[in-house]
Nucleic acid binder design. Sequence first.
RNA 1: GGGGCUGUAGCUCAGCUUGGUUAGAGUGCCGCACUGUCACUGCGGAGGUCGCGGGUUCGAGCCCCGUCAGCCCCGCCA
Length: 588
Amino acid sequence: MSATAYRTHRCGALSRAEVGRQVRLGGWVHRRRDLGGLVFVDLRDRDGLVQLSCNPAWSPAPVMERAAALGAETVVLVTGTVQLRPEPARDADLTSREVEVHVTGLEVVGPAQTPAIPVARKEKEELPAEELRLRHRVLDLRRPELQANMQLRHRLLQRARQVLTELEFLEIETPILTKPTPEGARDYLVPSRLHPQEFYALPQSPQIYKQLLMVAGYDRYFQIARCFRDEDLRADRQPEFTQIDLEASFVSPDDVQNVVEQVLLELWQEAGVQVDRPFPRLGYREALEQYGSDKPDLRFGLEIRDLSPLVGHDAASFVTEARAAGSRLRGIVVSGGGAFSRKEIDGLAALAKEAGAGGLIWARRAAGGWEGQGVKAAGSTLLERLGGSEGDLLLAVVGTDAVSSSALHAVRTALTRLPGVKRLTDHAFCWIVDFPLFETDADSGEHVPAHHPFTAPHPADLSQLKLDPGSCRALHYDAVYNGNELGSGSIRITDPAVQREIFSLLGLSEEDIRRRFGFLLDGLGAGAPPHGGFALGFDRIVMLLAGATSLRDVIAFPKTTAARALFEGAPAPVDPADLRALHLEAKP
RNA sequence: GGGGCUGUAGCUCAGCUUGGUUAGAGUGCCGCACUGUCACUGCGGAGGUCGCGGGUUCGAGCCCCGUCAGCCCCGCCA
């Protein structure tokens, strides 16, 4: 299959099976070891390495000469015979190490300048600075680690296509040049040449299109969709990213979750991990109460407890006063946490403060009873009521629920990285359900959609939509894995009247609604089936399954945190004439 | 928009604490030697805008201010 006019095999594919065969290979010079009379070359391609052995006993003089002059990363074509290595390979895990190629012909077809960053790295040698890796992306992409990541990415993509196709989903493409319809994030805009002062927007997601496909009767849609959001970046966020986007008609939340679970199961299986179904479901309120987060890492217990009922009269005044003001005392008991150093505990306290807590109350249970700063703060009555056993560590926070949740979530996340903290499992999926429909904007105090404005309200809460929008739940669900949000979805609004009401709750005038979302409302009025869907953050999934720590390691040509492409040099200024054609003027 | 870390040879880093002769190491590169290496080995050599700009000082890689770039986090973002 991999044979071409130039080669019979890939370098990394040679094994005992080919011993004695005459082969032709093409690849990159990974490393060269020149012993004077003998030259060994590790030749690399996407399948791996094979050792070339150049020896006057079988290599003609010109071959010896050329082999001795080979620079790193040069592309060569080689002819030779596959032979077992004289000595048992030291690295038996690399099958190609069992054999080598006795070179009879060697031709340089792609001379290479000395690489600016090394492709062949020594053991434990640090990676070059990320800036250089991005600038010299071609060289970085040659590294076996990134080759493996990109190959995994391909396999996951194909697997997703396969399983969704088996589930009768149709892959349908939607426009990249779309209408600016803000869903929360800033749009990337594209000026129109034919229509002065008008703009396309790149899609933040194919949300409205996929809903209209449901209205159009396509019943089950999916797309490996590129999405664009002009927001500030993070290690796990890029300005353009890929979603496995899907939508289905006549479905309940369970139906959608069922499909998503099947997709995730197959993707994890492709990466060699067996996943149990169904995933546990956890209410949004419950998740915040027990874990302080709507994306809890359920590989760990470490549940948050409400300690308020245990507070006695001997608690410190700042605790009793906060209690009187309506705050709660919440905490985590870490079994075995008594062994943490003071430095580790101080580190946790710093995180709690950073998250807005006044401080972290802590106490550990030694042989003689509870000790530590928390004995005074929480009061010994509380600690007696709490009980516990020797070696326990109590970490607690007083404050509003919002503060204690985010502080304890930060503490809990840090705890999971400390040595000796017990893990219940390696792979913990869950669904977070019953999200609120609206959030209150911190600045304006106005209602904003918790997700996007097309999410259907929970039927049980529909009657409160006007009276008390804040208490309305949504038919929205998130898939969470090991503390990472993999994606989210919902049942959509199909009643145009309800959709109008949501828009107007968001402060849109009738005219705004018409202008911005008229085509959606017309669609919904044309006979809309009940429908819902989901979008999985594909890059993040690849990152997690590849064991990478950055999205940039699973994207061939990523952007920096300032949204620059260092390799090709985007964005870039354009010729004023080109701007004029677009009816634009660049102001300094 | 805010905070933090980093920037010295092609690459990875030391030097900065406490300003002072000619800025070092490993690796890569170049040359020589070497017939079973696999991070080959040995010997020799070249290689520096200490990110950039300004300031303090007799003197700045080192101190101060600004700026640029990369990374991480908060805000933002599904």
